[in-house]
Amino acid sequence: MESCYKHSIIAMMPVRNEIDRYLNEVLTHLLKWVDKVVILDDASEDDIIEVLGENERIITHKNEYCIFEQNESALRSKLWNLTVKENPDWILAIDADEIFEDRIIDEASLLINQNYYDAICFRIFDFWSSKTHYRVDGGWNPWVKFSPLLIRYIPDINYHWPDRRIHSGRFPHPCDNYIPYYSDIRIKHFGWADPKDHYRKFLFYQNKDIEMSGRVSQHTQSIMIAPQSNDLETWQDAKRLWFRGK
């Protein structure tokens, strides 16, 4: 099952107004284990692309106007097309506020250099009002769900995107049917780590919920309900194994 061919990973990442957030930290970590990062700036009002500077492993593109707020799948689809032009073996779909725990640096190549699994799924932990605690109540429970974030790119397949304005998924169909491997390596999501973002994001998801289903979901409502102390757990990085350099 182990493959002797060394596969490449190209990360694709949509960004918008990321200055003073987590992008530098995310990219520094990513470049330790992926080959390239394709960034699609969704018409940021800041000059994030200029700030990133020249780096042959970071490929940047910019939209003239913001697509995400109108149609998430259109944004994801455009980013996908830009990414496949780079001839990836594997594609990582990651956001500008997500960081894998360090184990991935040692183990990513082991996970992908095989010929059985086509999708690697991970658990995502939502950090809440801090970079030390994650939320575990209701729909925030990170332990119950794995998300496919790293998939094998198979050039001969006819990929297509669902027409969804929100929660379109990060990959086109038929990636959702790929043979999965559920990895225990976790992802830290800092999108909720700054309490200043909560109300703005609440309004965004509230509007999208009403647009999509006519009512505000319980999960969206929970953004504005402060979690109890036992709804927050302390994050502990998993210990790195011994695969370094092997």
């Binding site: 099952m1 182990e2 184990r103 183990e107 082991l110 996970l111 095989q114 059985y116 699994y117 332990w143 119950v144 491997y181 225990d184 502990q236 998993a238 210990k239 194994l241 695969f243 092997k246």
Partner: peptide
């Protein structure tokens, strides 16, 4: 899932105890 969460926490509390899993092709390593 609960058992895996508990095992992760338990392992994180002891420097000499690890908890993880690996696909079969990595197990030989």
């Amino acid at each position: 899932d609960i058992l895996e969460a508990e095992a992760s926490k338990w392992a994180s509390e002891n420097e000499d105890i690890y908890y993880y899993w690996q696909p079969p092709h990595i197990m030989y390593k």
